[in-house]
Each structure stands twice: as structure tokens, then as C-alpha cells.
């Protein structure tokens, strides 16, 4: 993970395609996703988005700042969403359980907004995007240590019905 982050940093935002592919291949698989092989996903399908692009980005503790790794994933999301423009989608913001309930609701909203702003700056139409925060209410990983908390501090881009 650390070396990948370094790669992304040195490559810079303009040339992240290779690094982003590497990231999505090893780091950004959703924890509870089906292990369908990448080849099985039809281009433009929801599965294609989840498996080949990566539907989620992760945050540092108590932060809504996009990491270089997150930016790389969102860059890919923006490209994909630019190709398949019929999708509307919701950006879900989530927090880990190490915060109080109300604050985590607001923190999740802040994370979703950060993703929304990034995608909008990359040309994704605002009227296709909606944000919602679940705070600490919907963890994907359940345990009492950092391996779970880091997976739960996330924003997930959930594709909706095609218009």
C-alpha cells in the first residue's frame, strides 16, 4: 500500500492511469463484494464499475481529505461515468465507529461532498449526483481494530437506474 501511494504521488494527477489500475486491482476491492472475475463484467455494467473501476475510496481517521489513492480512483470513476452517461448515482459517505453518532453523520456528509466536488470538477454532471451520509450506521467490516475501521471510513459511489 505504501509503495503504491508513493507511485501515485510521483506520477502526479495528470498521469495516474497506470497507477490507478494498479490501485484498483489490489486495494479498492470492496470487502464484501462478490469475487467475480474482472473479465466477466460487461463493459458499462454496474459490475464493470465496481470491479474494474472501484466504487469506493477510503479516508484517514476523522478526515474528509482525498488521499492520492482516492483521487486516482475518482479519476477512473469520472472517466467511466463520462463514458456511460445514462447512470445517475448516489455518493454515500460513511464513518468508522470511533466517533459520536451526530458528528459521524456530519463527517460522512463531508466525505460524500468531497467526492461529489471532485467528480464535478472532472466534468460529471451535478444533476446525476446525489449524496447521503450514513455516519457509522453501515459498516462493511466488523471487528475491533484498525483493519476494520480503515475499511469503514469510506465513500461509495452507488450507481442507480439508467435514465
Amino acid at each position: 500500500m505504501l509503495s503504491l501511494t508513493r507511485i501515485v504521488r510521483s506520477a502526479g494527477l495528470a498521469a495516474t492511469l497506470i497507477a490507478a489500475l494498479a490501485v484498483s486491482a489490489c486495494a479498492n476491492k470492496p470487502a464484501d463484494d462478490s469475487m467475480a472475475s474482472a473479465g466477466a463484467a460487461a463493459p458499462g455494467s454496474q459490475q464493470d464499475f465496481v470491479v474494474n473501476v472501484g466504487d469506493r475510496v477510503f479516508f484517514e481517521s476523522d478526515s474528509s481529505e482525498l488521499t492520492p489513492q482516492s483521487r486516482a480512483t475518482l479519476e477512473k470513476q469520472a472517466q467511466w461515468l463520462g463514458l456511460y452517461r445514462t447512470y445517475a448515482f448516489t455518493v454515500e459517505g460513511h464513518a468508522d465507529e470511533r466517533g459520536t453518532r451526530e458528528y459521524n453523520i456530519a463527517l460522512g456528509a463531508r466525505r460524500a461532498q468531497a467526492v461529489r466536488d471532485y467528480l464535478a470538477a472532472r466534468g460529471v454532471e451535478a444533476n446525476r449526483m446525489r449524496t447521503v451520509s450514513y455516519g457509522k450506521e453501515r459498516p462493511v467490516a466488523v471487528c475491533n481494530d484498525i483493519s476494520c475501521w480503515s475499511q469503514n471510513r469510506r465513500s461509495v459511489t452507488v450507481l442507480g437506474a439508467t435514465s
Binding site: A106, A109, R110, S133
Partner: peptide
């Protein structure tokens, strides 16, 4: 109550 607007509440 709190109202959320963008990144702020």
C-alpha cells in the same frame, strides 16, 4: 437541529 449544507453542518 443541524442542517447540512455541502461540507458543513
Amino acid at each position: 437541529m443541524s442542517l447540512q449544507q455541502g461540507s458543513n453542518s
